[in-house]
């Protein structure tokens, strides 16, 4: 089988990257090790844990179940596109205030799942939040404080409007 390299052009967090990749390179590995965007984490590589969730053309998907070559011509957003330590994204701020993270490994995946979710559902119920994050596993928090954080972010967002 070929070890052929495929040229790809991908826009990640607004920056255009041109690289050459093997067909089998997983998008998660490409983002982490070729582009050095280490905030996307790899927890299972079979699409269950959700730690590698990113936005692909705006939709939350598993980056471990997409080949990097398939990202050619597409737009990706990772956790690095949200806030900075000095200026957190409102959802990151709510995660901080509600203690919605412990080891932090699953957190980028939760954030990338929840950012588009909150855009589509600005006033979710607790049950809707739980359903939305059922594709993300957290071993530390028991999810309680994550749900609180999402409600906090939703409440602050409607106050701001």
């Amino acid at each position: 089988m070929s070890n052929k390299l495929f040229p790809i052009t991908v826009t990640v967090n607004g920056v255009e990257y041109k690289r050459e990749v093997e067909a089998r390179l997983l998008l998660s590995d490409f983002l982490r090790h070729d582009l050095g965007l280490l905030g996307t984490h790899v927890g299972c590589e079979h699409g269950i844990c959700g730690a590698c969730t990113i936005l692909f053309d705006g939709g939350a998907v598993r980056s471990c179940l997409i080949f990097a070559v398939q990202a050619n011509g597409h737009e990706i957003r990772t956790v690095e596109s949200l806030g900075t330590p000095e200026n957190l994204h409102p959802l990151q701020q709510s995660f901080h205030e509600k203690h919605a993270l412990q080891c932090g490994f699953c957190t980028p995946g939760f954030l990338m799942t929840l950012v588009p979710f909150l855009e589509e559902n600005p006033h979710p119920s607790d049950d809707e939040i739980r359903e939305a994050i059922d594709g993300n596993i957290c071993r530390c928090t028991g999810y309680e404080k994550i749900v609180e954080a999402v409600q906090d972010a939703a409440a602050k967002n409607s106050q701001a409007k």
Partner: peptide
């Protein structure tokens, strides 16, 4: 857990 290589076609 990394896939084996393969020939890739993107018609």
């Amino acid at each position: 857990m990394k896939p084996v290589n393969f020939d890739y076609y993107a018609p």
